[in-house]
Design a protein around this nucleic acid. Structure first.
Length: 844
DNA sequence: TACATCAGCATTTTT
DNA sequence: TGCTGATGTA
């Protein structure tokens, strides 16, 4: 979020605050400026608040939210209403006025990037470092707690975090071993169900007690769940959902451990509260519990100075809780997010104060009106209308492409226009519902020489070569992790096949050894000399690497990058890739080099970072964390990833039935409403320009299917959109009837009057470009065609023919080598940029 | 044990 | 369309 524009000030500037008795105070918190959980509000004036300067530029509601002091505060923050400003000023205010030490602050954000930004802004407001604040995601905070307390629950501090890929790999093996697929179990299904249970804090024992054991399906699932849980424990590993759930279980089972954190965090702030699930909600509840006197005594006897926190009864009262959210932006129900957490906040925390932020500082009124109109169709919500003082702005632009590629070409052309008019690429974003939609966009963007970056998607860390390299590191950090060990056992090929693996496993079993220990004993297994040698060599390599990170090693601890290169060289992995004749392995080797660069970067940013720290960071990167503000590239991402972000210009693509709302959501209760919120989130990301696009046909599974305009499009008042190419035009079937009439699917259309969506029809009548042209005459039936032109030379003045755009004249050639770009003026479709090497062009 | 070939299947969104 | 896994062969 950017800085706020000027807003009316409620209070005149006041004199600087003098903190009597505070200046020379030590760090024990014995002279607090006010009780954090005092309860009687900020208006009383018992304590002197933070200095006026912190609240400059806030509107009255924002200011109230930043200044309020009390047990519980709910900030209902509409999109773009400046909630980050409020949160940062609230934190800075608490610290500046000495109501809290930085170390007493716990702020939960949705991404690591948001966390870093918040920290920077707080420090900026305070004019210096504020060390000790915990500002992080739920998952990062929990990992931090779990690593500290690992021994309490039978793990070691170097436990591995399994991502969804690891979870799937493990489940796949279990399902196969149990022959569970014959009962209809799939990896995805089982993973989903286990995840749901964990998000509801149902552990194995609880589930087993309630399971219906006369149902063979249920029995089988219980067995899968049991084995999965056992394997995780044996591997000293947690999956994503465990990170939250196990922390809650830890707090519940060990009140003394909980008390450490309850007494430490006096001010807890949670962003995006509407997307918390039950486990996360419970975690917050645990952290905001008061600490009973006997446990406080116990803390004190262990040297924790918490006396200043105690009240008259000897209790440490609840920490204060601030949550920020907007139920209209709840888009993670599929992951267990429970909208009730925010709706029922006032019931959960009696006496809670609620502040509503409705003024929007981000978008133009046209964009907001569209957003308001769309979300108003969700019943069962508190009415909330975003408004702005910045004026109407430009109209929303609509476009219907012939195909996904055509749509992508429209996006690329418009981006070039915006860029030509002075907008930076990094201020432009393209959103879509499913990751699969990136393909067409990428093909066109590459061909158009448009700089872009895909967020999330096929993630770097999901590539096989990266997972292999990471598995080496994981095996060194956590020798119990069988999944990682198995992965590298025969990668690169060293002749240790499945048969050998089984023998090692049973040897380990028979002798009560770990698999790693069995490997060291390979000589006594009676295997062939070649295999034995291979095992011993790998085992030795891993032992040597482990010594490099052993803190007790007199030679000191090696940086992660050194350990990684040692493993990659010693195992021959990188050499195998380099010598391979598969052309793709060259790119893979480059990716591995990239990983080494990442570890170097990590060491620069975290001079004291250990291998485990590195692995943690990598496990918890979110798609939105990859955004590099300084990069000169257009950002491509899913609508989910877009939450919390903003761009000058936003392209919402694929606004079609079965895509948005997605086909899969149709059967789920609340599905269409959630999809509408997703659309709403997308619209409200735009600051100045908004483009909505769709295609008449879309390729999927190599087949081309007919696509219909999304029902949500008709919810936007027609006068807000200017259709460049409306859904009603260019009807391939030759009729004059609006295609959009077909948008209403059977069962939906009937309900709203027999004439079939007249409002939609009206809106189309207003659409300016209502051509009735047969398909064949489409100016740019763009395809994804590419070709290898080798060293085709082009110079200004050359005439060319393009497979999609027709004839044109080269006006300029820029760039070098494989990245040479031709600027071409086409006769029919205007100016375009083309990457010469791959564009489907011929020189005439 | 390693590699090639082919059939079948998959795509909702994510920490 | 593009990947994974099963199958067959050297």
């Amino acid at each position: 979020m950017t800085s706020l524009p000027d807003a009316p000030q409620t209070t005149p500037s006041s004199v600087p605050i003098i903190l009597d008795g505070w200046q020379g105070d030590g760090g024990d918190g014995s002279a607090r400026a006010g009780s954090a959980a005092g309860g009687d509000g900020g208006s009383g004036g018992r304590w002197r608040g933070p200095s006026e300067r912190l609240f400059e530029g806030l509107n009255p509601q924002q200011r109230e939210a930043a200044e309020y002091r009390g047990q519980a505060l709910l900030i209902v923050a509409g999109a773009g209403s400046g909630k980050t400003s409020v949160l940062t000023r609230r934190i800075a205010g608490l610290i500046e006025s000495r109501e809290a030490w930085p170390s007493e602050i716990l702020a939960i954000t949705f991404t690591n990037k948001a966390a870093n930004e918040m920290r920077e802004r707080v420090e900026q407001l305070l004019g210096g470092k504020a060390q000790g604040m915990w500002i992080s995601t739920f998952h990062s905070a929990c990992v931090r707690i779990l690593r500290r307390e690992a021994e309490t629950i039978g793990k070691t501090a170097s436990f591995t975090i399994y991502d969804s890929g690891d979870t799937r790999a493990l489940l796949k093996r279990i399902i196969k071993e149990l022959d569970a697929d014959t009962l209809g179990f799939t990896v995805g299904g089982a993973a989903n169900r286990i995840s749901k249970l964990k998000n509801e804090l149902t552990d194995l024992e609880t589930f087993a007690r309630s399971a219906n054991l006369s149902d063979p399906q249920e029995v089988m699932f219980l067995e899968i769940f049991r084995q999965y849980t056992r394997e995780l424990r044996r591997a000293n590993a947690f999956d994503f959902d465990d990170l939250i759930a196990e922390t809650v279980f830890l707090f519940r089972a060990f009140p003394r451990v909980a008390a450490l954190y309850q007494s430490r965090f006096r001010h807890i702030l949670v962003d995006e509260y509407q997307d918390t699930n039950h486990a996360q909600y419970s975690l917050i509840r645990e952290l905001t519990m008061p600490v009973a006197p006997d446990i406080v005594d116990d803390l004190e006897s262990h040297g924790r100075n918490v006396r200043p926190l105690r009240d008259a009864a000897g209790v440490i009262p609840s920490a204060s809780l601030t949550v920020v959210g907007d139920s209209d932006q709840s888009i993670y129900a599929f992951r267990g997010a429970d909208i009730r957490n925010i709706v029922e906040f006032e019931r959960d925390f009696p006496g809670a104060k609620v502040v509503l932020l409705e003024q929007n500082y981000r978008s133009t009124q046209n964009i907001l009106s569209a957003a308001n109109a769309v979300i108003a169709n969700n019943f069962d919500r508190k009415d909330k209308k975003l408004w702005t003082a910045v004026g109407d702005g430009e109209k929303i632009i609509g476009y219907t492409g012939y195909s996904g590629h055509d749509e992508a070409q429209f996006v690329a052309d418009e981006i070039e226009k915006l860029h030509g008019a002075g907008m930076a690429y990094k201020d432009i974003a393209v959103f879509y519902r499913t990751n699969a939609q990136t393909r067409a966009l990428e093909e066109i963007f590459i061909r158009s020489a448009l700089p872009y970056k895909v967020m999330g998607g096929t993630k770097f860390y999901e590539r096989a070569e990266i997972k292999d390299s990471m598995a080496y590191l994981i095996t060194v950090a956590n020798p119990d992790d069988m999944l990682a060990l198995r992965r590298i056992l025969n990668t690169p090929k060293r002749g240790i096949g499945p048969a050998t693996e089984t023998q090692l496993a049973s040897y380990a079993e028979d002798n009560g050894l770990t698999f790693r220990a069995a490997m060291r004993d390979a000589a006594s297994l009676g295997l062939g000399p070649k295999v034995t040698n291979a095992i011993l060599q790998l085992s030795g390599l891993l032992d040597e690497a482990a010594a490099k990170i052993d803190p007790s090693n007199p030679a000191g601890v090696s940086p992660v990058a050194d350990v990684l290169t040692f493993l990659l060289d010693g195992s021959g992995y990188i050499e195998t890739l380099r010598n391979s004749r598969d052309p793709q392995d060259e790119a893979r080797a480059e990716n591995v080099d990239e990983l080494v660069a990442v570890t170097r970067e990590f060491a620069r940013n975290n001079p004291d970072g250990t291998l485990v720290d590195f692995l943690t960071e990598v496990s918890l990167v979110a798609a939105a964390d990859e955004i590099d503000d300084s990069s000169g590239a257009v950002s491509l991402m899913t609508l989910h990833t877009a939450k919390g972000l903003e761009y000058d210009a936003v392209f919402l693509t694929g606004i079609e039935e079965d895509l948005l709302p997605h086909r899969m959501s149709a059967n789920e209760p609340g599905g269409p409403a959630e999809e509408r919120r997703l659309f709403y989130v997308g619209i409200t990301r735009a600051k100045k320009r908004l483009f909505l696009s769709l295609a008449m046909t879309r390729a999927q599974f190599g087949e081309t299917a007919v696509a219909m305009p999304s029902r949500y499009l008709q919810e936007i008042p027609a006068d807000l959109i200017e259709w460049r190419q409306s859904p009603g035009s260019a009807n391939g079937r030759g009729g004059t009837q609006s295609r959009a009439l077909n948008a209403r699917r059977p069962g939906l259309g009937a309900g709203s009057g027999g004439s079939g969506g007249s409002g939609w029809n009206d809106s189309l009548a207003a659409a300016p470009f209502r051509q009735e042209r047969p398909k064949a005459e489409w100016p740019n039936r763009v395809t994804g065609k590419v070709r290898d032109n080798g060293d085709l030379e082009l110079a200004p003045g050359d005439r060319i023919r393009h497979a999609d755009f027709g004839d044109g004249r080269v006006t300029q050639v820029t760039g070098q080598g494989a990245k040479r770009v031709a600027h071409v003026q086409f006769e029919k479709v205007g100016a375009k940029k083309l990457l010469i090497k791959i564009a489907p062009i011929d020189k005439l």
